[in-house]
Design a protein around this nucleic acid. Structure first.
Lengths: 245, 245
DNA sequence: CGACTTTTTGATCGGCCTCAATTGCTGTGG
DNA sequence: CCACAGCAATTGAGGCCGATCAAAAAGTCG
């Protein structure tokens, strides 16, 4: 259902089967769970079959399904959603280096549905392997703890936004937050449709579209084929704090 | 505000009557972080000064303050809030056996303001002690991980509720959730004011009051001096799923 | 009992949703 | 290269839900 994107965007390069499956050369190894592990352990882990290139729109796992693996995202963007009352709520956006699905370690099933918003490269980590690493390398627990804490903070921020701010302020805050993840570039990918942005912020397509269009009209943001540029962060900042008009 | 609190803040000194400060006899030891520890370690930990009895309304720590300790709640209810746009959002309700403030382990500061909603008994755990336990007893990390995962799920549920449901459904869902925590009793304490319920659910005092009054009129709930009884869980369940009227 | 706070109820307003139609974009096939 | 189909995004009109403003009623505690 995805694919407004003409280009694979963030992909390191290959569409094709040519993946670099060597953990030692993994571009996100240091920031990943394995950053904490000794190099020789990482070498043992090397299992080409566990590296996957998936197309945009692909569902990687589903809410309530039995969990067999956690994933580290090497490239692309993934949404984690849960469904209530027939409505989907995006609870987290996964970007490069993030871990997802690790809740399977504790509960045995996934808490979300994970869907690729762009073509993605993921590293699949079977739960039993993760369990073993956890036992053999206590340091791994620190890494997991840090991941969990970061996830908790993200969701708390989301609840705070949705619970306290109105539509325009939520959208402005989200754009600023998102730009913070790609701060090094002038323009940044925004692989969320209006519908998905709404599912994240607890708004309808139309409301998101209206405020987005408004921001563009005022020159606060530019948008072109799935990429945006923040033109006036100050203004967005003010709006996100409720000083509208 | 809650009860006007005559007392200072983090006073080590227990105000009330003599507490049973022995960890070995602690009613929540098995469910607490210490449940994982060998008994002889727990004995060493025994430090009477770290057990506190605090009055309702007491602020235990504040958002952004440097964190010196985590806490286990032995008895009572505590709200964890964050502030945005001048509005408070309750992000979690802490009940017996829950741990709070452990984020200080990783970030060095608290992510919320913790306020007692009832008189509470807490067990104070200095961060350095926790760090040491973490190093010396890797099993402790499992306990922490489980706590973090549970907190994450709670907040995700909150975000899901606020993001996808309307007022009446949110309130009904909350009442059911809350009754789930005191399932063994027929009537259960609800130590949240209408204002606080609103801060949790992203609603105003008046909206909460209106729906609450409505539920009572219909006989779905009874309320008497801070305690409620769920009379018709089925009906509330239906409402929480959007099948109103 | 009397002062204060909290809750309830009413009336009105505004923001966001809903329904509906138009415009714009992207990829496809003639 | 253009026409067209199929979506996504935009824009408009109207209605409902919940916020806001205001006041009365009920509960709490000295």
């Amino acid at each position: 259902m995805r694919t407004p994107m003409p280009t694979p965007k963030n992909s390191i390069e290959p569409l094709g089967p040519v993946l670099d499956n060597n953990c030692m050369r993994c571009p996100v190894r240091e920031v990943s769970l394995f950053g904490a592990l000794p190099l020789e352990i990482v070498e043992q882990l090397n299992n080409p079959a566990e590296h996957q290139l998936l197309p945009s729109g692909q569902v990687i796992y589903r809410e309530d399904a039995a969990s067999d693996a956690a994933y580290t995202l090497k490239d692309g963007v993934i949404k984690l959603t849960r469904r209530a009352n027939g409505k989907d709520q995006i609870l987290r956006l996964i970007t490069q280096g993030d871990v997802m699905g690790a809740e399977g370690l504790l509960t045995g099933h996934y808490n979300h549905t994970a869907t690729a918003l762009t073509p993605v490269q993921v590293c699949r980590l079977p739960i039993p392997v993760l369990k073993r690493l956890q036992d053999e390398h206590p340091i791994m627990n620190h890494a997991l703890l840090a991941r969990w804490a970061s996830a908790l903070q993200q969701v708390e921020n989301l609840a705070l936004e949705i619970g306290t701010k109105k539509a325009g302020a939520r959208l402005a805050a989200f754009l600023l937050y998102w730009s913070g993840r790609f701060g090094h570039e002038d323009s940044l990918p925004l692989p969320l449709s209006r519908a998905e942005t709404g599912e994240l912020l607890g708004l309808t397509i139309e409301t998101v579209s209206r405020f987005f269009a408004d921001f563009k009209r005022r020159g606060y943001v530019k948008e072109k084929s799935g990429r945006i540029t923040i033109m006036d962060a100050k203004a967005l900042e003010a709006i996100s704090q409720g000083q509208s008009h």
